[in-house]
Amino acid sequence: MLSYNTQKKLLIFSFLAIPLALLITFSFYPAVKLIYYSFTSWDGLSNNYPWVGLSNYKSIFTNPGLFGAFGHNFSYLVCGIIQNIIALYFAIILNSKIKAKNFFRSVLFTPYILNAVAIVFIFKFIYLDTGALNLLLQHMGLGSLQQDWIGNDSIVNWSLAFVSMWEYFGFNMVIYLAALQSVPQEMYEAAKIDGANKWKTLIYITIPNIKGIIQINLLLTISGALEAFNIPFIMTNASPPTATFLTNTMNVAFTFGNYGLASAMAVVLLVLVGVVIFIQQKLLGGGRDVV
């Protein structure tokens, strides 16, 4: 007969074993391997892993073709921040007493549910030189604003980042909505009695109460911007003016067969996202642990 304590331990262990095994197999083991590969010049197929030390990391920072791609991520970052502002704006409107609230909520959330690849294809057609956007501009008498939205290298990244904004802002909005609904109504009532207007309520009550959620949303947005991948990959096949750091990583691995260097790039991206999170916590963090 097992003692109660042993039984307890056995139970805990057996419940944890499966998720832990899965976690280790599919998350930790590949991560450790990834770091190991990043110090080798493995070609992705052979059985030898020539150790090259830090040279992969050196070449990432010395080759502007690789690291410089972060310049293209900048537009995703800017659009990501705008996306959060719009999302918060709509969340506040939809949290007030307006008609057909649920209808608008679901309409605004729809882009996020749509198939991400399909969205990119839709926009590929919208952005054609004879596509919907240019036709619309023409019919509105704004023909002078017509552009090659993809063909013009100085605006292509903004065109792509807009797609990301359009797709993900519904998701941000839903999170903001949930947070807004948890703000106690008494606070608003008290503020109203004290004579606060809408703007002051927003600044002094709403935003401080959902600060943690704003942080999470920004975190998701910024790491998403650094990891921008599927939109340039599908829309432009990650052509040189639109290549991001992650599409370059793919290229290095699968076109140039340098899995070692690509692994190092993945590690650099991981570290970079960590650093950005840390800075953001330092700047915005008010002692509340949210991440």
Partner: peptide, 20 residues
């Protein structure tokens, strides 16, 4: 080669088993 859209490259690279 359209199929790889959603894959996180980190996992993909790390996940290639080395046991041939």
């Amino acid at each position: 080669t359209v199929s790889t859209a959603g894959l996180a490259s980190a996992l993909l690279l790390g996940g290639l088993a080395s046991t041939a």
